[in-house]
Simulated assay, not measured.
Amino acid sequence: MDEQSRFGPATPPLRDTGPVLERIARRLAARHGRAFSRETIAAYVEECAELLGHRARNTLHLPILVERFADQRLGALAKASGLCPKPVPQVLFVCTENAGRSQLAAALLRHRAGDTVEVRTAGSDPGSEISPIVQQLLAERGLGTDDEFPKPVTSEVVAAADVVVTLGCGDACAVLPGRRYVDWDLPELSGLDIESARSVCTALAARVDGLTRELVDAPVPGTSSDHGHLGRSM
């Protein structure tokens, strides 16, 4: 699905932010208006524009990314607050730049689990674009990153997750009660030769397989038997 068909008419680059952000807020109000006020939605849109704006190399697609980021955050907030159903477990992958390992792991899990798991990604210090090595590794498996892009980790996305998988971001990810945290200690892809990067991808795929089996077989997210040995819970 292309950007225009998913988000409606294209918006111009964020030169004059006011009208652009207002249009984004109106579209998001049609999706999230039952859960949140127009003021809350507008505030999220403005904050997302600020968070993404100073990292963007190319502002041409920035309005689309702002809308997508705000949409994801509002959806996560609604689920974390119990304002909308949460029919499947949610997994959040967090690395430093949200451009390498977290994106690779997320694409592998989406492919492996399909619609039985909802997958999100974030970074403690996000970069400007997904790493080319991730694109190559996924292309070798016939996969892609879909509509993903580097974005900062936010509290509502952590709160909505049943499992938070960290990949080298240290203590930068918020630790919230009731979340289950797992650390996958794998090398950063940046600077690796292609064979070493493929080895990391293979290791990630194996861990994703194990995580998928546990999540899909678990009876209900949040029960005492759920994800029992995945990691520490707070």
Rank of each mutant, 00 (worst) to 15 (best):
D185F: 05
I194M: 11
C169K: 04
A139W: 11
G100K: 05
P187Y: 03
V182W: 06
R101F: 12
A99S: 15
L138C: 10
C95I: 06
A161L: 05
S199F: 00
D146K: 14
V158T: 09
R179I: 12
R198F: 04
A139I: 09
S196G: 02
A205H: 07
S199L: 13
R112N: 03
L167S: 03
E156M: 13
D171S: 14
N98L: 01
I194L: 11
V91R: 00
S190I: 13
A197S: 11
W184N: 01
R112K: 11
T145E: 00
V134R: 01
A139F: 13
Q136S: 13
R180Q: 12
A107Q: 10
L104R: 01
Q135I: 09
V153T: 13
V117T: 03
R101V: 11
Q103W: 07
S190F: 14
F149L: 02
P177L: 00
V208E: 00
C201G: 08
A105H: 10
A99K: 01
P132I: 06
V175L: 12
L189G: 08
R141V: 14
G168S: 10
R207A: 01
E148H: 14
A197Q: 06
I133F: 03
S155T: 15
L92R: 02
G168M: 07
L192Y: 06
S102M: 08
T116F: 06
P152S: 06
D147C: 08
D171Q: 13
Q136C: 04
V175T: 13
Y181T: 07
D193F: 02
L204Q: 03
G123Q: 01
L189C: 09
D193Y: 07
